[in-house]
């Protein structure tokens, strides 16, 4: 009885920690590979385009509406106290400090995360990743590293642009 109970408790726990371990190893290998040649410049540029440029419309759209909504709502509240002049600075602070980073990150994570999972999943199933290995190319360096570097480089830029658009919206 007790043994059965403990087993039931232990199994998911072991599974949880083993997947946590796998994830850590994956992250370690990916980050380590960012600093070890060979680098794949072409793949990096493609990811920068994919993650950065093609995310602009979504990021722009969400931040512009966020800016508009904040301006509208804070105006309706502030006008009761005759503090309309504070609307601009409220929009500025809330967009740049909170909304632009959160919204850009969410949009990119949603849009790009799904796309990457689908793409790399397909490559796995159709043996393209094995094919990379047999062509003596490290799949981590070829596939994962460019994506991570691109995301790290591009996200702040997206936040910046998102902030500008959001303020403009406000």
């Amino acid at each position: 009885m007790i043994q059965k109970f403990l087993r039931r408790l232990g199994q998911p726990l072991v599974k949880f920690f083993s997947s946590l371990g796998e994830l850590s190893i994956f992250v370690m290998r990916s980050v380590a590979n960012c600093f070890v040649p060979p680098f794949y410049g072409r793949n990096l540029m493609r990811q920068v385009m994919d993650i950065g440029f093609y995310s602009l419309p979504v990021v722009g759209l969400t931040t512009i509406f966020a800016g508009m909504v904040i301006a509208l709502q804070s105006y309706s509240g502030f006008s009761r106290f005759g503090a309309e002049s504070a609307v601009a600075s409220v929009v500025l602070i809330s967009v740049t400090r909170e909304l632009a980073p959160v919204l850009s990150a969410l949009m990119v994570a949603g849009r790009i995360g799904a796309a990457m999972a689908a793409e790399i999943g397909t490559m796995r199933v159709t043996e393209q990743i094995d094919a990379l290995t047999t062509l003596s190319t490290n799949p981590y360096k070829y596939l994962i590293t460019p994506r991570i570097v691109a995301a790290v480089v591009v996200l702040p830029l997206l936040v910046l642009i998102g902030g500008v658009i959001g303020i403009f919206g406000g």
Partner: peptide, 14 residues
């Protein structure tokens, strides 16, 4: 792997 070549079942072209 530099010594090896492989033809995959489904081609596995990129």
């Amino acid at each position: 792997h530099a010594k090896m070549g492989m033809l995959f079942q489904g081609g596995a072209l990129f």
